[in-house]
């Protein structure tokens, strides 16, 4: 790797290094994390983050 790397090379490297199983695990985990975020819309969990949502500027009253 003496020449300049490109974004394309990085995608290639990631593909070589990770197996299909690992990629599936990553995607499943991201899906689960998204699910958890949506689940937090539950009023109790949502309300208890109230101050944080104001402080981070992400609000929905």
């Amino acid at each position: 790797m003496t020449t300049t790397e490109t974004v394309h090379d990085r995608i290639g490297t990631a593909r070589d290094e990770l197996t299909t199983g690992q990629l599936l695990a990553v995607f499943a985990f991201v899906a689960a994390a998204t699910f958890a975020l949506l689940f937090l819309q539950d009023p109790l969990a949502h309300d208890s983050m109230h101050n944080f949502r104001h402080a981070a500027g992400v609000i929905c009253h």
Binding site: S48, M49, F52
Partner: peptide
């Protein structure tokens, strides 16, 4: 709210 907000 205070504790959960810190954790968040």
């Amino acid at each position: 709210t205070a504790v959960v907000s810190v954790g968040s």
